[in-house]
């Protein structure tokens, strides 16, 4: 399980970096899908198979399809690849790299202080359902209201 975790984590990291570096937007999107699938595997190794499957169905399977759908409509050709490449120059990297390095140092510090082993416990579908419709029912309802607002907004825009 530990090997599986490190493998999936490495794939997730590399593909996420590739999303940023890739100048072809479709390839970048494919790397993002790969990264999401790797995160699903990480969820699975942490004992959350339901979350893993939802990650694959909702993020990799549904939301990214819509992204790809929009890209198809935009008709981005070779010109956009060159434009992306011209934007991604060496100078642009300095600021983000410094800030990301600071965050990395903090993160490593936190991880180092945490001595206790993370206990991996299995959380099945039933437990997730009980939690969602038990103590967290209010959050579920609020999320559904948010989704409904998005739906009404999309309907309004399409109607115009």
């Amino acid at each position: 399980m530990m090997l599986l975790f490190y493998l999936a984590a490495a794939i997730a990291l590399i593909s996420t970096v590739a999303v940023i570096l890739q100048s072809n937007v479709v390839h970048a999107l494919l790397y993002l899908i790969l990264s999401l699938l790797a995160v699903a595997v990480i969820f699975y190794t942490f004992g959350a198979p339901f979350a893993a499957m939802l990650e694959a169905i909702v993020y990799a399977g549904a939301i990214m399809v819509l992204f790809l759908f929009v890209i198809m409509m935009l008709n981005l050709g070779k010109k956009s690849v060159e434009q992306e490449r011209s934007w991604l120059t060496g100078k642009i990297w300095i600021g983000p790299v410094i800030m990301a390095a600071a965050l990395l140092v903090q993160l490593l510090n936190v991880v180092r202080q945490q001595q206790a082993e993370v206990a991996v416990s299995q959380v099945g579908v039933r437990e997730v359902g009980m939690a969602l419709f038990g103590p967290y029912v209010l959050a579920v309802e609020i999320a559904s209201i948010l989704l409904l607002a998005g739906l009404v907004g999309a309907y309004h825009l399409a109607k115009k």
Partner: peptide, 25 residues
């Protein structure tokens, strides 16, 4: 698998990429 039905649904939703990428590329 305890999540067999979900696994099939996940694979079905990933299958959409095949036809989309085929047409787009």
């Amino acid at each position: 698998s305890n999540i067999g039905v979900l696994f099939v649904l996940a694979m079905a939703s990933l299958g959409a990429y095949s036809v989309m990428l085929g047409g787009l590329s």
